[in-house]
Design a protein around this nucleic acid. Sequence first.
DNA 1: CCAAAGCTGTATCAGAAATTTCAGAATAAG
DNA 2: CTTATTCTGAAATTTCTGATACAGCTTTGG
Lengths: 290, 290
Amino acid sequence: MRKDNTKPSPDPQSLAERIRHEMDSFTPSEKRAAHLLLSHYPFAGLDTVAEFASRAGISAPSVLRFVTRLGFSGFPEFQKHLREELEAQLLSPLAKASPADKSPGAPALAAFAEAVIGNLNATVENIAPAEFDAVVALLADPRRPLHFTGGRFTGALARYAESHFRIVRSHVDYIEGQPALWRDRMIEIGRKDVIVAFDIRRYQEDVIALSETAAKQGATVVLLTDAWLSPIARVARHVLPAHIAAPSNWDSSAGLLLLTEAMVAAVTKHLWETAKPRMEAIERLRNARA
Amino acid sequence: MRKDNTKPSPDPQSLAERIRHEMDSFTPSEKRAAHLLLSHYPFAGLDTVAEFASRAGISAPSVLRFVTRLGFSGFPEFQKHLREELEAQLLSPLAKASPADKSPGAPALAAFAEAVIGNLNATVENIAPAEFDAVVALLADPRRPLHFTGGRFTGALARYAESHFRIVRSHVDYIEGQPALWRDRMIEIGRKDVIVAFDIRRYQEDVIALSETAAKQGATVVLLTDAWLSPIARVARHVLPAHIAAPSNWDSSAGLLLLTEAMVAAVTKHLWETAKPRMEAIERLRNARA
DNA sequence: CCAAAGCTGTATCAGAAATTTCAGAATAAG
DNA sequence: CTTATTCTGAAATTTCTGATACAGCTTTGG
């Protein structure tokens, strides 16, 4: 009772679902292949044909017939599909759905905190001390103007950094990510300037463009990013990666904030001789205004 | 608390982290390979050598040299490692709750992180679960417009919150702290509106004024503040205090960020039915632009 | 500015992997 | 019980991938 594979099947759904759906129409050995694949989906399919066949307890040709039956032209194409499906699911925040699981309220907060703390530990452990020190020394050099920038979400962190550094030293500003807003300012950027860019995954084109342009002008680029590294890393002189995984559809920026605050603290200490009178003066100005 | 800094850490960590550590010692083409791999980790490594080389803009032999340099006997072994790592990571998303044993060389950063982590724990312990839940329910009510605001430094956090909530639901905005900028908008604020104010010590006059005015108009005020409580607490319906002490001249906002992110996560989950299509639509718009 | 060392790509090869062939085994029908 | 049909796996075949040798190029050090 072989069915002709009339279904062109535009196939927005997962391959796994389709296999489950068509399970009835499979031959015995095809079923063994299907069960193996579904039981370790999709990793079982990423091995070689021989390995897959052996683990399923069938022969290689049966595996080939199986993937052909699913509509693929060959095993490599089948594997490619699995990889792409996996990548899409892993990268898209939408796919991290995780519907109904956790109990509400405080446990959620506590679980979230636990994950964030894990991130902070991992972040600290993976920062090269020399790299951190070098960045601090760079940011503490009063002759080098500092420019902070960031993306959709990380822009807020860049602002946070800027608002602190602004108190401690001079020549500090924030650059909006949109190219129209910074294009003409680039003429001012040169060897002595330092760009501090915040960029995490879903890396943002305009921030990348800004950093690359600045680097081309000779500026020193410092990058705060996630553990997978923004493309900006290619042009960055210093890279500080943070762990950002969280039990949520969103990533956590706590690691980036930690690094930012630690930098602020270290630079403040470093520049204390000049920072102290400066901070006092700012204080006086604020009070005078009120 | 035993620390063992003698070992260069055989291989408990992710390959990605090791690559990042050794990045400096790579040759130019090895760096291109490394960057490609890290930017699409680990999927870029699951293709064939030729594909990988082409995407990295280098030759196949360079890729081979790269994986050899990482300590693998060949490309297949390298791929096998990636698959196993991926599978392990996918099966236990939060398996990385590693206990803290601090890195040897960065005492400043490590000490800072320790203090921040202490703050986070203290923050979580001192939040009344019911209060957190109530805030989440409030922020997840689509009929209630949300307005975020904050002070000199906390303004960045308010922006961070706003940029996330804006994705998840509608009627979300950010209000600048300066009275001149919000005075006339207050006419619009009424019983149904929710003000989420960020304010920590050196409590800022204009944020206080804004919150009091809004409260007088009948708006519901949610306050994120430090453990000593901003004066806004007097008019706030809900107060979420965070610990902010840090070994620095500055306070740490990590606790506030934690609360913010936890709120975003909880509200996203709460509104998932409507948030999902909304996020997908936003995604489409963003892609369309490019 | 020159020489040595190191890096990188082209061309090539060996080997492994996927695929096809075909004969035998299992199954179902008559 | 026989026969037709389908299914399956061993072995042969083909394709393609990963690996290597070598020569040109770039960078580094004197």
